[in-house]
Design a binder for these strands. Structure first.
Lengths: 193, 193
DNA sequence: CGCGGGTTTGATGATGCTCAAGCCCGGTGG
DNA sequence: CCACCGGGCTTGAGCATCATCAAACCCGCG
């Protein structure tokens, strides 16, 4: 149940077995079935969730009722609404399982306490954030300057898991396209092969 | 010369005067005139730069030679190419002064050492990153789902400084628009007032 | 077997880009 | 002090990309 977490932390910082045992005690395991939600838009995000197994997404709903996918998260990734989690504000995101999933939840106070007892965990969190930040900057650049086809191809190269495991209309939303446009883009690409 | 830095750190964490004195010793002051660069595309980003005074931007150049603005940074903000700075890879960004500016530079080793000697500085860095991450997520959402006019209006509301102090063609690039389109958007908005 | 969500296909239209020209204004040199 | 130059902003016409609306299709599931 904690393999992915151990692997993720171990890749970023070094931790003794005893420290990891301590670390584990701060998490709350939780299973989610497909389409169940971890967080509903409007609620306060009480957990930082680490994914041991499965796929989740976060999305907002705009005035017209369209879902706009913000993020996909797979095994070994974290997901939450950081803004709501950190500030206690009402979330603008919903977080939902795309497949049956197994999570490890960290409350705000557990996280604070863990960072105090295990300063290396704060370092781990910072490194994760740095990586996430870099990835987001790259994504912004693609979002602003690439065509529909370029964005899709970049996604297939960088995150083949997304293509393999996520329904197409959610990918379209993630790329800022309509499902129709993504369908046509894929057709074009296939015709050329 | 260190007022903005003291203010920025003080807003996020608490620090004694003596600790701040220690902190200061890790930084290298540097002045930059308008249009001078801190980092050139292709070089390794050796510094994390804190801005005491002035405005900078980072941008990439695509295959066709178009500049794509990634970020603007004002007094009290940080700027660097995190990916290059952390990994020692060649930067894909250029960082350039938009106005005459005064910077405080932190090398990689100075930053590591500072985080060890002053763990609260690691916390400060993590909090900054959290905020930057949240802001980027919001920006992604606008980039993918908002019209040209909506993106511009959101920018005027969220970052009036950008409108006031940055040339219009750079704003256009930041929003992923051509200068012509931004000009027309502004005209439309003015006509309605 | 039939229903329903997701994907595809088609026709039409809007948004924003490209290319081209003109304008405005600040800086430079005669 | 004025004329000229050049960069940046504006304006216009035509065009490409992608969205919208509508309908058909496909396939898994009750």
């Amino acid at each position: 149940m904690y393999q992915q977490l151990e692997k993720s932390i171990g890749e970023k910082v070094s931790l003794t077995a005893a420290e990891f045992e301590l670390c584990k005690t701060f998490f709350i395991p939780k299973k989610l079935r497909k389409k169940q939600t971890l967080l509903l838009e409007g609620d306060v995000c009480s957990y930082n969730a680490f994914i041991e197994k499965g796929v989740l997404r976060s999305y907002t709903t705009d005035e017209k009722g369209n879902e706009q996918v913000i993020q996909f998260a797979f095994e070994g990734w974290w997901i939450s609404d950081l803004s709501s989690f950190l500030l206690g504000s009402n979330s603008t995101y919903t977080i939902e399982a795309i497949e049956d999933s197994e999570l490890l939840l960290l409350t705000y106070s557990a996280r604070e306490e863990l960072m105090i007892q295990l300063p290396v965990f704060e370092r781990y969190q910072r490194i994760l954030l740095q990586n996430a930040f870099i990835a987001l900057q790259t994504r912004i650049n693609a979002a602003l300057n690439a065509s529909a086809e370029e964005k899709y191809i970049k996604l297939t190269v960088s995150y083949p898991d997304v293509i393999a495991r996520v329904p197409q209309h959610m990918i379209a939303s993630y790329l800022g396209l309509t499902p129709e446009t993504l369908s046509r883009v894929r057709k074009q690409i296939n015709l050329r092969k």
